[in-house]
Amino acid sequence: MFKKIILGTASMLALFSLAACGQSSASNDTNKDVRTLTDAQDHKVEIPQKPKRIIASYLEDYLVALDEKPVAQWTVGEGKIQHYLQAELKGVPTINYDLPYEDVLKFEPDLLLIGSNGTLEGGKYKEYEKIAPTYVVKNGENVTWRDQLEDIGKVFDKEDQAKKVEKDYDQLVDQTKKEYKDKIDGKSAVVLWVTNNSAFMVADNRSSGQLLYHELGFEVPQLTKDISKKATADFSQVSLESLSQLDADYIFLVNSDTGAAMFKDPLWSNIPAVKNNHLFEFDNQSSWLYNGPIAYTKMVENIRDVLK
């Protein structure tokens, strides 16, 4: 009898011990599955260790660069997507750029990355965080694509991969500067975007302007300097009369309006770069209107192709 009591007590102790171990193990697993990070708006966000259903509207470039695939991709209106990413995002359904609550809910995300403070106006953060952990990525006028890539790399615990992406890009830029030295040194260039029969020019320190002037080392034409002083966005509208005085050696044109009347105007035809066949045209499916490591890499590749 005594022996049975001892055995029974030992069995119960063993069960309690296993249960306690199980709880401890579960607790440790839970801790391992979540990391707490502070985002750009000082929210403490519990990030899943390996999120599987990510929505990161207009940040898809960074996700693809880090080998992550979103459950939905950015769009503005019908069919307006980031075409240059579609080899990796083929078949991924779209979600409108302003992330309507009901649409977000429908995709059942386990992580939301927000790339602009403006997206959260009107108390939207509280709505989104009820659906999934919501992390606001570094953003703003002085935030570069590198800053955003590193921040997103931190979210996915892929800081080393983010640094490798930057290093590969820098090597491509350095290689291009050396190989195309005679076509870059002392040469000026501009990026124009034509849409709805209107022309827009990139500022000297934004988007592709940053690439042309600060990374590759093209000269900045006077007209670009002038519009950059007042620029409040990547591209600023510029009149055809002003463009007729443009003294750039090269024009990189993003053409979203191939039938624009301005192309038939003598003022356009007489722009020196146009007359000298130094007008290099890209369609609206190219990466020139976007930001991110893949967008910039494709821009450099485009420049290499046309300057061969």
Rank of each mutant, 00 (worst) to 15 (best):
K3Q: 12
K4L: 04
K4H: 01
K4A: 05
I5D: 12
I6R: 06
T9E: 02
A10Y: 00
S11K: 11
L13W: 04
L13P: 05
A14K: 03
A14M: 13
A20R: 02
G22K: 04
Q23I: 07
S24F: 13
S25V: 14
S25N: 12
S25Y: 14
S27Y: 11
S27C: 02
T30W: 15
T30Q: 14
K32Q: 14
K32A: 14
D33I: 00
V34P: 07
T38W: 12
K44P: 00
V45D: 06
I47E: 01
P51A: 10
Y58Q: 05
L59K: 04
E60C: 02
E68S: 07
Q82F: 15
A87E: 15
G91M: 06
Y97R: 13
Y97M: 15
P100I: 00
Y101M: 15
D103E: 15
K106P: 11
E108D: 12
P109C: 05
L111Q: 07
L113I: 03
G115F: 01
E121P: 05
G123S: 10
G123H: 13
Y125C: 00
K126L: 08
E127H: 06
E129R: 15
E129M: 15
I131K: 01
I131V: 12
P133T: 10
T134W: 08
Y135K: 08
V136I: 08
K138A: 09
K138P: 07
E141A: 11
T144R: 03
W145V: 04
E150Y: 12
V155N: 08
F156C: 08
D157P: 00
K158F: 07
Q161R: 10
K164N: 11
V165S: 03
V165I: 15
V165R: 00
D168Y: 11
Q171E: 13
Q175D: 15
Y180S: 05
G186S: 00
K187R: 10
A189G: 08
V194P: 10
T195A: 14
N196D: 13
S198V: 06
V202C: 04
V202H: 05
N205Y: 09
R206E: 00
L211Q: 07
L211N: 07
L212K: 13
H214W: 00
E215V: 09
E215I: 05
L216P: 05
E219D: 13
A233F: 15
F235N: 10
S236G: 04
I251P: 08
L253C: 05
A261Y: 04
A261N: 07
F263K: 03
D265G: 14
D265W: 15
P266T: 06
P266Q: 07
P266M: 01
P266F: 04
A273V: 08
V274P: 03
V274N: 01
K275C: 02
H278I: 06
L279H: 04
F280R: 00
E281M: 01
F282T: 00
F282Y: 12
S287E: 14
Y290G: 06
Y290T: 05
N291Q: 13
G292L: 08
I294Q: 09
K298T: 13
E301Q: 11
I303Y: 14
V306T: 08
